[in-house]
Design a protein around this nucleic acid. Structure first.
Length: 636
RNA sequence: GGGGGCGUAGCUCAGUUGGUUAGAGUGACGGCCUGUCACGCCGUAGGUCGCGGGUUCGAGCCCCGUCGCUCCCGCCA
């Protein structure tokens, strides 16, 4: 054994008090048998209770808070498990050492557990009935002045928090979130295994796949000019696992996408509960996944209501776009959008601005009496979103008759108004907002955002609930207006809901038919967040080639890019399907947070930098040479 | 790539219509204090007002540019 010694056979300094008092203390220590105690702790800082009074114990942790009364110092010692108040008086030889300790120093205290004095019990602390009388102290690590205080729950700038993430993580809120995350992942694993799923690992260094997001590329040293790619998801691997004859795969899988971040979308990397099953229909996947998600939410929701797994509503994509203006609706919000285009087409309605357009009405129950500023604010917001505005009608009761008020009400005669009120389910005291656009999807989109804003401002969204739904029947294709071509709408590996022979016979000219094809593709949405997307896969190589051909990929191109998968499908592929709920978003929802950074241990900034580890960073010339790379910087 | 918000002491912030030496709280340091738990009291130090340019007799404040963080749009099957 060398002088420094391995870390598992420590011989820590017993004391760092002044040498004069050290001897006395050391003698005291020996007489009480301290030297036979564990080097760092006999208990955790969250452990001691009334029943431990009288015991001599050793605690290690961080100085959460120090209260110096001159003749009496309190130190709140904190570790992973909790906080214990420790106290020392000047008669004790260790007093001088404790006196020097500051916030976030790491200390080991040895001493006796005592009852708190009458009237000084702290009911907020689990350990609040006792305290530790410090008899010995060891300084294990000092701390410089803190750029970010651990104590308290103040807000700090994001870059400071990220640069000093190790300090931020010591704080109660993040510590709790990260532990919650761990608990959720453990629970998910347990539930998946109980359902007969098996966890397999798939490669991290793999091939670039052309669909979807930008890849992170890893240059190959052995093959100049060639690159690995980090997986955007283990999509192809999990399908290959099914072809390989395994069944019911899952993985807590890291996914890598070189796209910009959002509050609910980490830049760079994130985790999915990736799963796949063989010989299943869409219903089988739903029946397997819903209980896992509902179960995990039930377990960690802290008493909030959770949709029962058998009661997840199934909302077809088209219906979601109409009623909610989005494919990830928050169905806690009771507002449902309706189409009133026909009302504005009536001969007796002379509001030209809406003629010939898609007009969606957003009912705002009880909003009628809101002040003018309420309506102006929403109108202003709509304009900032690029809409022409957000028209509205306020419904009032006038001698038993329903009348409309507001800037556009005068264009709408009573009969049309009545029809409108009927469609929108409006009564006196309600308001109806209008989103109109020549393009139906734009009208729907603005209406959807207005629905969300109205739900929030009118306090219509219950906060004590997790409401799940399936979004089903996604379109297989969509029209790319810019490039005047048919694109995949979502996942190109989904099975079309279409007769096989008819599908194989499709021609590019059948544009309307093609754009009407739905896929066996589905999302799980909870409280307005897309938690997962999945599909019954296309396991028929001919149908797959045809599907890609429709989206403009030549057969040879598809053959080349998906060689591995097509080849596998030609050697006996089972029908299969799956999905992949986002772990980070699940934790975010259950933690009640609105940003993924709050539930990620070491997140990057929105602009994809790791301020703690300093990534990305330049490669040195030796590395570049080995990788056959030369950097060309962008021109200024 | 584009739009909005923010950037002043280690940290959180205030700073009036452009006007003397830029303030407070907290933390740090020093002193006092034996029952606090956001302990209290007194004192000291601590600033390139993100950076660069401009307007002005005079800029933390107005203008232009730029950088950083953030939220959003694009993007994310």
């Amino acid at each position: 054994m060398t002088a420094s010694g391995p870390p598992d056979s420590p011989s820590p300094p017993i004391l760092t008090v002044l040498s004069e008092t050290a001897t006395k203390a050391a003698i005291l220590a020996d007489s009480q048998g301290f030297s036979t105690m564990h080097a760092y702790r006999t208990h955790t800082c969250g452990q001691l209770r009334k029943g431990d009074v009288g015991k001599t114990v050793r605690l290690s942790g961080w100085v959460n808070r120090r209260r110096d009364h001159g003749g009496l110092i309190f130190i709140d010692l904190r570790d992973h498990y909790g906080i214990t108040q420790c106290v020392i008086t000047p008669e004790n030889p260790a007093f001088a050492a404790v006196d020097t300790a500051r916030s976030e120093w790491v200390l080991t205290f040895t001493g006796k557990v005592v009852d708190r004095l009458e009237g000084t019990v702290n009911a907020d602390l689990p350990t609040g009935e006792i305290e530790l009388r410090i008899e010995q102290v060891t300084v294990q690590g000092k701390a410089q002045e803190l750029p970010l205080p651990v104590f308290g729950d103040q807000e700090y700038p994001e870059d400071t928090r990220l640069t000093y993430r190790f300090l931020d993580l010591r704080r109660e809120r993040l510590h709790k979130n990260i532990m919650l995350r761990a608990g959720i992942i453990t629970s998910i694993r347990k539930r998946m295994i109980e359902q007969g799923f098996t966890e397999f690992q798939t490669p991290i260094l793999t091939a670039s796949s052309p669909e979807g997001a930008r890849d992170f590329l890893v240059p190959s040293r052995r093959y100049p000019g060639q690159f690995y790619a980090l997986p955007q998801a283990p999509q192809q691997f999990k399908q290959l696992i099914m072809v390989a004859g395994f069944d019911r795969y899952f993985q807590i899988a890291p996914c890598f996408r070189d796209e910009d971040g959002r509050a609910d979308r980490s830049p760079g990397e994130f985790y999915q509960l990736d799963l796949e099953m063989s010989f299943v229909t869409q219903d089988d996947v739903f029946n397997a996944v819903a209980p896992v998600l509902a179960g995990v939410f039930e377990e960690f929701a802290g008493g909030k209501k959770v949709t029962k797994p058998e009661a997840f509503p199934r909302i077809p994509y088209a219906e979601a776009m109409l009623k909610y203006g989005t494919d990830k609706p928050d169905i806690r919000n009771p507002i449902e959008i309706v189409d009133v285009s026909a009302v504005f087409e009536r001969a007796d309605v002379e509001f030209k601005a809406f003629k010939g357009k898609t007009v969606r009405a957003i009912p705002a129950p009880g909003a009628g009496p809101q002040p003018r500023s309420f309506f102006d604010k929403l109108n202003e917001w709509a304009r900032s979103e690029g809409a022409a505005g957000l028209g509205y009608i306020q419904f009032e009761d006038e001698g038993g008759a329903l009348v409309g008020k507001g800037p556009i009400a005068k264009f709408i005669p009573p009969a049309a108004l009545a029809e409108m009120a009927k469609i929108g389910g409006s009564k006196a005291g309600d308001a109806l907002f209008f989103s109109a656009d020549a393009k139906a999807d734009r009208a729907a989109n603005i209406a959807g955002q207005a629905r969300t804003r109205l739900g929030r401002e009118l306090n219509l969204i219950p906060q004590d609930e997790y409401k799940f739904c399936w979004i089903v029947d996604f379109p297989m294709y969509e029209w790319n207006e810019e490039e005047k071509k048919i694109d995949f709408s979502h996942n190109p590996f989904s099975m079309p809901q279409f007769d096989r022979d008819a599908f194989m016979a499709l021609d590019k000219a059948d544009k309307d038919t093609i754009l009407g094809i739905k896929a066996y593709q589905y999302d799980i949405v909870c409280n307005g967040y897309e938690l997962s997307s999945g599909a019954i896969r296309n396991h028929d190589p001919d149908v797959m080639l045809k599907a890609f051909e429709i989206a403009g990929y030549a057969r040879e191109e598809t053959e080349e890019k998906f060689k591995g998968m097509l080849n596998a499908f030609r050697h006996g592929a089972p029908p299969h399907g799956g999905t992949a709920p986002g772990i980070d978003r699940i934790v975010m929802l259950l933690a009640g947070e609105e940003n993924l950074r709050e539930v990620t241990m070491f997140p990057m900034t929105q602009s994809a930098q790791d301020l703690l580890m300093n990534a990305p960073s330049p490669a040195n010339s030796k590395q570049l040479k080995e990788l056959h790379l030369r950097v060309v910087y962008p021109e200024k």
